[in-house]
């Protein structure tokens, strides 16, 4: 068998090379597919579902069995009418209802929307702050660098979980409007989280700054912003992308933990974390799996998918990869 001679003389761009390496990683592709799937699930689901996020359903007790009231004209109050709680999955409520009579599937969808939104927003804010501050610190060095790094150290020392719990309870006590709680949550998590990104950016810039191609750009006479944006930042991009992707997963985990503890997304809004919270009641844990397993599984799948994606990207970007 002889080796086929290449007849095409086209060289491969680094971008194509990265893409090729990425596509070889089956796990990364799986991760990407899962994320796309979940996004579709959430968006299409929300568009399609007839139920509201916290709409409460009623049922009537007929012959000692709970039957859901489907006729909207029937009066809501009556002798045998009560809240349709903890229903098992049936044809009208694919995942049943929760302990307050709300449709679980719809809440799952809303929860997805909220959790994903929080995660993306948080990462974006972290990137914005981190890249800016890290970039400035790395590029200008000196006392600017020192100052920013002190700030980073201080924030690092703050134990994140306790602080978030405290802020949360302050907000609850002061009766912070529920709607804005989500934004506040994003704000706090980003304010604590940007340090990781800033460190990486600063490190990269410090090492890149001295390399010859930067001196070359200076010799050619490029202006400073141009040098930063057109030359330095693209070199930091790969690591940033990887960090951002992995970061999304981590934010989702943190947010769900907070919501589970009651300090995150408040009722009656849905978040995957606070849906799992229902498991604290042993009866629910035992009998109503439909209430707490799906949101947990969603968290797991989503975070795993982002982790696969991030890891695959990291491998693809690494020029020293053997295969």
């Amino acid at each position: 068998m002889s080796v086929q001679n290449q007849t095409t003389v086209k060289p491969i761009t680094p971008g194509q090379l990265i893409l090729k390496r990425f596509l070889r990683n089956k796990l990364a592709i799986a991760g990407f597919a899962i994320i796309v799937g979940i996004l579709l699930f959430v968006t299409v689901g929300l568009a399609v579902t007839p139920y509201g996020e916290y709409e409460i359903f009623y049922s009537e007790e007929i012959n000692d069995k709970d039957v859901e009231i489907t006729d909207p004209n029937q009066s809501v109050t009556g002798d045998n009418v009560e809240i349709y709680k903890k229903a098992k999955p049936n044809s009208r409520h694919l995942l049943g209802t929760d302990k307050d009579g709300r449709d679980v599937l719809t809440r799952l969808l809303h929860g997805g929307k909220v959790s994903l939104f929080i995660a993306f927003a948080c990462i974006l804010v972290e990137l914005a702050i981190g890249v800016t501050l890290g970039g400035i610190a790395g590029y200008y060095g000196g006392w600017v660098d020192g100052l920013i790094m002190r700030l980073v150290d201080v924030i690092n020392c703050i134990p994140s979980l306790p602080v978030m719990l405290i802020m949360s309870s302050i907000m609850i006590a002061n009766q912070f409007p529920q709607k804005y709680k989500i934004y506040a949550l994003i704000g706090i998590m980003s304010l604590l989280g940007w340090v990781g990104i800033a460190r990486i950016v600063r490190g990269q810039i410090l090492s890149l700054r001295e390399q010859e191609f930067m001196v070359a750009t200076e010799a050619v006479g490029l202006s400073t912003p141009r040098r930063i944006f057109k030359h330095l930042i693209p070199n930091v991009m790969p690591q940033l992308i990887v960090m951002a992707t992995l970061g999304v997963g981590s934010v989702i985990l943190t947010e769900s933990a907070l919501s589970y503890l009651g300090f995150g997304v408040p009722f009656p809004y849905a978040s995957w974390g606070n849906m799992v919270n229902t498991v604290n009641d042993p009866i629910i844990m035992k009998n109503n799996l439909n209430m707490w397993v799906p949101p947990g599984v969603m968290i797991l799948l989503t975070v795993m998918a982002f982790n696969f994606l991030g890891d695959g990207l990291r491998d693809a970007f690494d020029p020293k990869m053997k295969r």
Binding site: Y260, V276, K286, G296, V303, N307, D311
Partner: peptide, 24 residues
């Protein structure tokens, strides 16, 4: 691939969820 998948599973699990599953 198998080992990596298992590893990622572990990292991605929310602790409370897994704990609840185990308890159940």
């Amino acid at each position: 691939y198998a080992i990596t998948t298992f590893a990622f599973l572990g990292i991605s699990l929310p602790s409370f969820f897994f704990a609840a599953l185990l308890q159940k």
